[in-house]
C-alpha cells in the first residue's frame, strides 16, 4: 500500500511517498501557484516510483497551504504531522523543534509519539527561516554560506530579534567594520538563543530533535545545543519531517 504526505510550506513544498518501509521524498520552492507546484512535486515522486495518483491509498496535506491541495484526501495540521515525522525519523524523540519558513514550533511528545503540548511563535518572522534568508540577502550570502562559517569565527552579538530592527543593526555592524562571517554567526546565534528559549518553556530535559529547512545547517544545531546544554539531533530527512509524518498518518 502506498500513501503520500505533502507539506505545503511558505517557502517550499515538500512531499513524501511511503511504501510501508521506506520513503521517496522531493521538494520545490512554493512559488506563487500553490496548486500547480503541489501537483508538480507529487508528480516527480509518482514518476520516480512508477506510480499513478490512483495507486495512492490516501494523501494527507499539511502546512499552511494544506487546504489548497486538490488531490489530498484530508488535511492535518503541521504540528501533528511534524511530531509524527520526527518521531519516526529519530527514535524516542520527546521534544521537537521545527524551524520553518514563517514560524517556529516546539512540540512535546509522550513515549508513544502523541503530542502533549506545543508552542508556536506569534505573528512575527523573528527567528524563522525567513529571517535567515532576509539576512543572507543583506550579507550577500547564500544559505549554504551560513553552514560554512569557519569554526574559529568570533560571534558578533546581534541583540535585536525583530527582522526589521536586526536589519539596521546588521548594517551598522557592517559599516563599523565587523567581519561578515562574525555577523552571520551572530545572526545564527540569535536564532539559536531564541529557539532555545522557546524549547525550555515547555520541555526541560532530554534531547531535542531539530527539523525544518534550517535544520540542514549543522552550525545552527550546535549553537542551539550550546544554549540548551542538551543534545540536538537532526536527520538527513529533517526538512521532510512534516511530509513524512503526513504520509505516515495517511497510512493509519
Amino acid at each position: 500500500m502506498y500513501t503520500a504526505g505533502i507539506d505545503i510550506g511558505s517557502s517550499n513544498i515538500k512531499a513524501a511517498i511511503w511504501n510501508g518501509s521506506s520513503f521517496e521524498v522531493w521538494s520545490q520552492p512554493t512559488g506563487w501557484d500553490i496548486s500547480e507546484t503541489s501537483e508538480a512535486v507529487i508528480q516527480v515522486l509518482l514518476d520516480r516510483s512508477s506510480l499513478k495518483m490512483e495507486d495512492l491509498h490516501q494523501v494527507v496535506a499539511t502546512g499552511y497551504g494544506r487546504k489548497m491541495c486538490r488531490f489530498a484526501g484530508r488535511s492535518v495540521t503541521e504540528i501533528t504531522c511534524h511530531a509524527a515525522g520526527a518521531f519516526h525519523l529519530v527514535k524516542d524523540a520527546e521534544t521537537v523543534l521545527d524551524i520553518g519558513g514563517q514560524d517556529v514550533k516546539v512540540i512535546r511528545l509522550d513515549i508513544e509519539g502523541k503530542v502533549t503540548d506545543f508552542l508556536m511563535n506569534d505573528k512575527c518572522a523573528a527567528g524563522t527561516g525567513r529571517f535567515i534568508s532576509n539576512m543572507a540577502v543583506l550579507l550577500g550570502y547564500s544559505l549554504k554560506d551560513f553552514s560554512d562559517i569557519p569554526a574559529e569565527t568570533e560571534i558578533s552579538k546581534i541583540s535585536s530579534m525583530c527582522t526589521v530592527f536586526a536589519e539596521s543593526e546588521v548594517i551598522s555592524l557592517l559599516s563599523g567594520g565587523v567581519a561578515k562571517e562574525s555577523i552571520a554567526l551572530g545572526l545564527l546565534d540569535s536564532i539559536a538563543s531564541r529557539a532555545a528559549g522557546m524549547v525550555i518553556r515547555i520541555s526541560d530535559r532530554g534531547p531535542v530533535v531539530l527539523t525544518g529547512g534550517p535544520a540542514l545547517n549543522k552550525r545552527l544545531a550546535t549553537l542551539i545545543s550550546k544554549h540548551l546544554g542538551r543534545p540536538v539531533l537532526t536527520s538527513e530527512l529533517a526538512q521532510f519531517s512534516g511530509a513524512i509524518g503526513a504520509a505516515l498518518i495517511a497510512a493509519e
Binding site: E78, I79, T80, T116, F118
Partner: peptide, 12 residues
C-alpha cells in the same frame, strides 16, 4: 495561523 494552532490543539 490561529486556525492551524487551534486545529493542532484540538487534534491533541
Amino acid at each position: 495561523q490561529l486556525a492551524t494552532r487551534f486545529g493542532a490543539f484540538i487534534e491533541m
